[in-house]
Design a protein around this nucleic acid. Structure first.
Lengths: 329, 329
DNA sequence: TTGTACGCGTTATCAG
DNA sequence: CTGATAACGCGTACAA
């Protein structure tokens, strides 16, 4: 691996001049050409580690997410990437697998690798961001809150929960259950509250018996749906507070021959890889990609020196509502 | 951000000793404690950039993939991560968006950030890996070949194409079309050859008229399926050579009221987020996660100094065959 | 415009 | 076992 010294020697200039060529500083035409051709023939590339050590920063931003197998987060990642590319940043993804330990490790890596900044979708509401904050690195949270006073971009979760439940009641369903995520994950908790609010208003059944906590994946949704179906008086509709659990619930219903609209289903999030008839199911769309774009935009502003007080931006979500009457009992 | 010097000063030892403490070298009990508590109170963490510059390597491996929104690759990523974690490596993901330019950039970053090695699922069959190879960095390719003589792990693509087509003919379908990826992507080309072989043997129709090239995503599958359906004599079955195009084809068929088994569908790859009845559709399962595990295993061997000649391992895939007779015409 | 020389934070070498 | 010191490869005052 060639260094600027070797390039300098070959080009007959000083190392500093080589450095200048690769940093767009004033260098005469002539020497520039000499340096470039020398670099070419040695196939030299500036060593980012050294550069980063010297300049105390780099052009890459870290995106830390809890589940890389969830299309919601990959879509968010695309948003971040697209925005970052425009601004000349590269982005590396770190998957925490919903573990605050792995999360802490990746955050640690991000700062000690001198990355320009980090965007984190926290694994839980007690994620530890101190390693980043104490170093004054720019950071913004997406999707979930953190308990720290930092930039963040979220969706309005409670209204999403309300919208999902309301759509189901409006269609004529009577007992609307809810499959939600683990306790301590803000998005799940808030969506659940939204569901509970409207269920309390519009339903006349023991609401909290129809609430199930599951892991945020397909198998969680499956297990919860099975439980619900085995109740003495099963629900006739269900709200899933994220996409994957929605898929799980739908799978179980399909396998039981109770696919919508036989049992009503509303999902908060998108189902990009299904072949379902969109008319039979209520989707509360989450703007995952825009979440990523917004987060990247804020982060880049901070990296460029923006110093205003922390902001939280809330993106609206839109419902694509099924208008299927529930089957009369 | 504290340095070993500050820690050393506070602990009353030399910087070298601090370094030794953080590298598990022989240091007396006493000084070790002093250093640790000093480090604690300064909340010091070794600077990875400096360490990496000095040691000329790091503990992170780069995984470069063409489409982070494709569940096949995220599943592969999980395999890589799980294996890497065990061995004490962290992995960062880089999304090339099927662009050899972005790919080259990320490979460049990987080497110039002194990463331990890279696993790449090449964006095309003329991907440029020179930046990595010329530096002697360990590298292994997954899923797709490269034209370089390096370690690789693949699936047996042609048999997969044959299996998909065969299952459809066996079910009684007559005109089996094929929706495949862009030319120049080895996996797609090979699977197409497999389809063509059996179609030539078992079909009596102008085979190549029933071949469509599409991008590797859902919209590609949709567009291709629409084209096929608008033929004067449409196919009565179709092979999709990857998961996303399969989803696209299925969406169009569902929307047209021609869902399987009305029109036969075989997909090479898995459909993790569908709610389809698995019995109506033929899946040639691809061991994405195992691909990742195998690749990571090989890479780590190289990182640890293994120096045998490059190997290619081929993973078998298994068919989950639908046994639905085609509707009689 | 160009060159010299120092430092970014660590680890490795060499004495002690 | 411990300490001083020289790299690792680059960017940037400072001087010319």
């Amino acid at each position: 691996m060639a260094t600027i010294y070797e390039v300098a020697a070959l080009a007959g200039v000083s190392p500093a001049t080589v450095s200048r060529v690769f940093n767009d500083m004033r260098v005469s035409e002539e020497k520039t050409r000499a340096v470039r051709s020398a670099a070419q023939s040695l196939n030299f590339t500036p060593n980012r580690t050294a550069r980063s050590l010297r300049k105390q920063n780099s052009e890459v931003i870290a995106l830390v997410i809890p589940d890389i197998e969830n299309p919601f987060f990959t879509s968010l990642a695309r948003g971040v990437e697209d925005r970052a590319q425009e601004a000349g940043f590269s982005v590396v993804l770190c998957n925490t697998d919903e573990s605050t330990a792995k999360e802490a490790k990746y955050l640690e890596i991000a700062v000690s690798e001198n990355m320009a900044g980090v965007i984190v979708a926290p694994a839980s509401d007690h994620s530890d961001l101190k390693s980043v904050l104490s170093r004054g690195k720019p950071i913004v949270s997406v999707d979930r809150g953190t308990g720290y006073d930092i930039d963040g971009v979220m969706v309005d979760n409670r209204p999403a929960g309300r919208a999902a439940a309301t759509a189901l009641f409006d269609s004529g369903y009577q007992r609307v259950a809810c499959i939600t995520g683990p306790l301590g994950i803000e998005t799940a908790d808030e969506r659940t509250r939204g569901w509970r609010q409207t269920a309390t208003q519009r339903g006349s059944y023991p609401i909290d018996e129809y609430l199930r906590h599951a892991n945020h994946r397909v198998d969680g949704g499956r297990a919860a749906m099975i439980e619900l179906l085995s109740m003495p008086e099963p629900p006739d509709a269900v709200v899933a507070t994220n996409n994957l659990m929605g898929v799980g619930a739908l799978q179980i219903l399909s396998e039981a021959g109770m696919a919508p609209p036989s049992v009503g289903v509303a999902v908060i999030g998108d189902l990009p890889f299904t072949t379902l008839d969109p008319a039979t199911i209520t989707l509360v769309h989450l703007p995952a990609r825009n979440l990523g774009i917004a987060a990247a935009t804020m982060l880049i502003e901070r990296i460029n020196g923006d110093t205003q007080p922390p902001r939280t931006v809330v993106l609206r979500n839109e419902i694509s509502r099924a208008n299927i009457p529930a089957p009369t009992e």
